[in-house]
Write a protein that binds this DNA or RNA. Structure first.
Lengths: 320, 320
DNA sequence: ACCGGTTGCGCAACCGGTTGCGGTGACAGT
DNA sequence: ACTGTCACCGCAACCGGTTGCGCAACCGGT
């Protein structure tokens, strides 16, 4: 592996000039910059990240912490974050904390020595512990808000409320909401939003917290059937699919006997053209979060925390 | 952040002794080791990875390259690999190459300066280019075999063949195989295995390559119906679900009118107790691959490449 | 008391970039 | 010709661990 010294020698300049030519070209004569770049190119020079990290005191790595990889909700976020990180020359390390919300702080403290920033997606820990973790390094929260910390959330609460209102307009008077972990901030937001939207207009059955899996959907389906509701709002796609399947097995047909809301793309595939659909843009969420984090890391002045709320579009069936 | 110097001072030893006490304790008097460890603990010392990497010439980071995160097949692998990596004190960086099989080599060359090893999952590139990439750093292939390179694969080919034989025993004479990208090594293996298993016993309809999505399943379903087959072997769970849905919409019921094989857990959730199921252990696949890679990285002698083939259990319905 | 062999530790060089500071030469202004 | 400015560049120190080498103390054996 060629080093900066080799490049410098080849270009006939000192190591320091070579360094500046490559990383801060404004400080070097244009013609020299060209020579250095050409040598670097020719030798196939790739700067050693460890050395750069050591000298600069920054690693160029950001950690993305996800509760689990089994929920398909998180992977698009990771993908979007990774693309955005690559654009800024940042590496991305993925950490799965297996929903152990209470072990976050120690692990993150260890990690904080190795990375420049954190992207915490849907952290479940208590507000105080999470806040402590956020103070280790520049941090952006995804799908959770904590006062004083930058965050980016997909506004599914508003979308769910809109769906609930749509169902009410369509005459539904008993609606079920199937949520996730009750330690989840988003889940709380959604429950409140839907409760507010239905209050006085329809009865809302809030079912037990369910993991976002197909199996969980089949498991909760009987409860839905028993509650005698006519519309369901499940919080995750796989869960929704499980529900549709299991209801079908009990002779309850979607959409004929039961209304449901589901991710746009899946609805199209299923031919569920009469149901309202929502459309969370996971990659965009990840990209925005990473972008915000990058700002946070480069900006020296610790200005006020950004609180972004990405709208989640709701599409109503053509019939209005 | 406390440095090794601080720890050494606190323990009343030199920096070099402190370093050895922490990383090669056999070289230091036991009582000294204790003192150093105690000081490190008390100060909350966390070794600076960049410095270690620079001094040792190894980064302690391995890259996991996946074609995409949208296929639920890969995420459990990443999870398993991450857990195993953490056990060995390795960080894991996830790289998504967006199926651009021809851009692998350049990107990996860049990356190779920053990591100690590669886990290439299901690389689609040509054998020669992939082989070139494998020579940059210790590499373990997942779900692809190339002579001379260590690899770990889930033996779905054998499992699929077993399923095909099961279908034949049950009297099926027209079977459809729905595969993925025809650039995929695994896909090729599976196609061959199933072809061999059915040869002379049943007609095999090999359908067009499909992405592993629900939507693709609904798309390919008409072709399945038209081919007049009685059993389907789809290569991905989401795809299978899409097929079941869409067949159902056309009045073809699974399992009454059509046999299908599907992932164990989903089959249970669906109540498909009469269908053979397969059970790929993604986390185990990732863990084994990372384990193999770790061996490769620590072993100095470049011995013969490991070629692991994890069996994929097939469970037949209770009725035999 | 002398000696070869351990054992335990410190000195200082090194990994490969980055950057503060000082030196050099060109050029304009008087 | 003399000096002040400024753009450009090199020297060397530094980031924080790791490790080869050498020194000192201590061991049992003759």
């Amino acid at each position: 592996m060629p080093t900066l010294d080799d490049v410098a020698r080849a270009a006939g300049v000192s190591k320091s000039t070579a360094s500046r030519a490559l990383s801060r070209p404004a400080l070097v004569a244009p013609e020299t910059v060209l020579r250095v770049r050409e040598s670097a190119e020719r030798l196939g020079f790739v700067p050693n990240r460890a050395a750069t990290a050591l000298a600069r005191g920054r690693t160029g790595v950001v950690a993305v912490v996800v509760p689990t990889l089994e929920n398909a909700f998180f992977t698009p976020i990771i993908g979007g974050a990774q693309r955005r990180a690559a654009e800024s020359g940042l590496q991305l390390t993925v950490v799965v904390n297996a929903l152990r919300h209470d072990a976050d702080l120690e692990a993150l403290t260890q990690l904080s020595a190795q990375v420049d920033g954190f992207l915490l997606t849907a952290p479940l820990g208590s507000e105080s512990r999470t806040l402590a973790a956020c103070q280790l390094k520049p941090t952006v929260l995804v799908d959770r808000e904590i006062p004083g910390v930058s965050s980016v959330i997909a506004d599914t609460a508003t979308a769910f409320a809109a769906v609930a209102r749509h169902f009410i307009r369509r005459g539904h008077r008993r609606i079920a909401l199937v949520g996730g972990s009750n330690r989840s901030w988003q889940n709380e937001q959604r429950t409140e939003a839907v409760s507010a939207a239905t209050r006085g207009l329809a009865e809302l059955a809030i079912l037990d917290p369910m993991p976002p899996t197909f199996a969980a959907g089949t498991e909760v389906a009987p409860a839905i059937a028993d509650r005698d509701v006519t519309a369901v709002i499940p919080y995750a796609t796989a869960l929704a699919l499980g529900i549709i399947f299991a209801l079908g097995a009990r002779g309850i047909s979607v959409p004929d006997d039961m209304a449901i809301t589901i991710e746009r793309q899946v609805a199209t595939a299923l031919g569920l053209t009469t149901m309202p659909t929502i459309d969370v843009d996971g990659p965009e969420l990840g990209r925005t979060a990473m972008s915000t984090l990058h700002d946070l890391m480069t900006r020296d002045t610790a200005e006020t925390a950004a609180r972004l709320r990405l709208p989640v579009p709701v599409l109503y069936p053509a019939g209005g």
